[in-house]
Simulated scan of single mutants.
Amino acid sequence: MALEIVGKLIKVLPEVSGQSQKGPWSKQEFVLETLDASYPKKVCLTAWGDKVADLKQFGDGDTIKATFSAESREYNERWYTELRAFRIESADGSNDSGAGYAAPASRPTPQAQARPAQQSQPAPSFNTTFDDESNDLPF
């Protein structure tokens, strides 16, 4: 599962490295702030291995795009989630540093090319008000 996030780099945490049975390893966490004008969110991602070097070419305030995978694991009956960045690049794509992984490009099928483009429809509205009578959940 590959996800993408575009945001402003606001903090790069110190690099952590060590030695395992498989050899040396290094990781570095960094924080992006999304570009949503109303409600910007801060997201912490982790760069492992050679992606740590890719991260060093960016400075605080740079707008970058990170492609990542989300993974959770359990330890002592608690769950820990990590967002592991496997491609880090400038938001405009000029500083492409994803040499280790390139997502396959999706190509439209001939049938999709022959169909006329559909007009965009407004997103459906959802009722976000809740009361005790409309809540039919069993818990």
Rank of each mutant, 00 (worst) to 15 (best):
M1L: 13
M1P: 13
A2K: 11
E4M: 05
I5L: 14
V6E: 03
V6R: 03
V6M: 01
G7L: 00
K8E: 02
K8R: 13
L9M: 03
L9Y: 00
I10D: 03
K11G: 00
K11V: 04
E15P: 09
E15I: 07
E15H: 03
S17L: 01
S17D: 05
Q19C: 01
Q19V: 04
S20K: 00
Q21N: 05
K22A: 12
P24N: 09
W25L: 04
S26E: 02
S26V: 02
S26A: 07
Q28S: 01
T34L: 05
T34I: 02
D36I: 04
D36N: 11
Y39I: 07
Y39M: 13
P40W: 04
V43H: 01
C44L: 08
C44A: 11
T46H: 07
A47H: 02
W48E: 05
W48V: 00
W48P: 11
G49F: 05
A53P: 08
D54E: 12
D54A: 13
D54I: 04
K56Y: 06
Q57M: 15
F58S: 03
D60E: 13
G61T: 00
T63P: 00
A66W: 00
A66Q: 02
F68P: 01
F68V: 02
S72Q: 06
S72R: 10
N76A: 06
R78P: 02
R78Y: 14
W79A: 12
T81Q: 09
T81N: 06
T81W: 05
T81M: 08
E82K: 07
L83R: 04
R84C: 05
A85D: 02
I88Q: 02
E89S: 15
S90V: 08
A91R: 08
D92V: 08
D92C: 12
D92A: 11
N95I: 11
G98N: 12
A99G: 14
G100K: 11
Y101N: 08
A102S: 15
A102C: 11
P104Y: 09
A105S: 14
R107V: 15
P108G: 13
P108Q: 11
T109K: 15
A112R: 13
A114N: 11
P116H: 04
Q119F: 11
S120P: 13
S120Q: 12
P122L: 14
P122Q: 14
A123R: 14
A123T: 15
P124T: 12
P124D: 13
F126P: 09
F126S: 09
D131T: 15
D132H: 03
E133L: 08
E133T: 10
E133Q: 07
N135H: 05
D136C: 04
D136V: 10
F139N: 12
